[in-house]
């Protein structure tokens, strides 16, 4: 455990080196939310109904605000790419030779990245949520708060498992960067990040909401939005757990099988 703590500490320090770059990226992340709010204002003004996809205007704005929190837990920038690159360029060899589990090592790095991100982006997040306080549903009760923490933790686990699995495809394919890009684009849509999945035609919605992506982003956002009952929230978290175990399990199998194929080229 001690060695992973060292990895965590080193990664924290590494993330703090390029602070200007980090602040720039974090700041830019908030620009589209303004556009999204304005666009939906225009859509609601033009529509002859007050509810679209089961959401009022305020709830729609909240949905996009809260999805930023959910994505902060679930998104794993460059995780898949770095795993695939380590496999392709032979860098993985150095981790295999050490008394360290590579996937746990990557998980530790990611925890450090997330911690730095949450601390550094706390001010802009607080500011934008304070400005948009009128749209937000208000603080949840203790039960819903606990469920929100739980669902966000599961989001992190599913996000890590999915992205690791995509990265591990590098054992079988030489170049996966393009696949990762195409996958991210599809995920943006299927996870409800682009717009709430309830806006889709019913038949499409039924299919899409079965996939792990919906449980990684869409449903956790509904829990944060307090659009679901406690029972429904518990069901969502249970399904999240199942998806986490399934994708995590496939990930471990892929790692073991991949290692058998690994020829440690390069270096």
């Amino acid at each position: 455990m001690g060695k992973y703590f060292v990895v965590f500490r080193v990664s924290l320090a590494e993330r703090m080196v390029y602070r200007a770059d980090f602040f720039m990226s974090t700041f830019l992340r908030f620009i589209p939310i303004i556009t999204t709010i304005l666009l939906w204002r225009a859509i609601y003004d033009g529509a002859d109904q007050t509810e679209i996809g089961g959401l009022h205007y305020e709830q729609m704005v909240s949905y996009y605000l809260l999805i930023m929190i959910v994505r902060a837990f679930g998104s794993m920038p460059k995780l898949a790419t770095s795993i695939a690159l380590a496999i392709r360029e032979g860098e993985l060899r150095k981790y295999i030779l050490q008394p360290i589990d590579y996937l746990t090592y990557m998980l530790t790095l990611r925890c450090a990245h997330k911690l730095v991100y949450f601390v550094m982006s706390a001010i802009p997040y607080t500011l934008i949520f304070w400005i948009c306080a009128d749209y937000l549903p208000g603080w949840p009760g203790p039960m819903m708060f606990c469920l929100s923490v739980l669902t966000l933790t599961m989001t992190f686990c599913i996000g890590f498992a999915i992205n690791s699995l995509i990265g591990l495809l590098g054992f079988w394919f030489l170049e996966v960067a393009t696949f990762i890009h195409a996958f991210m684009t599809l995920q943006y849509f299927l996870s409800g990040h682009m717009f709430p999945l309830s806006l889709l035609p019913k038949s499409v919605e039924q299919v899409v909401t079965w996939l792990p992506f919906a449980y990684e982003t869409y449903y956790p956002t509904l829990i944060l939005l307090q659009k679901v009952s406690v029972d429904e929230a518990l069901r969502i978290i249970a399904v999240q757990f199942v998806w986490g175990v399934v994708v995590g399990g496939i990930c471990l199998v892929a790692w073991k099988r991949g290692l058998h194929r690994y020829a440690a080229f390069g270096g």
Partner: peptide, 14 residues
């Protein structure tokens, strides 16, 4: 698809 979704709810945007 997003545009189609938008215009299934409204006839114009500003």
């Amino acid at each position: 698809v997003f545009i189609e979704v938008i215009f299934s709810k409204t006839s114009h945007v500003r």
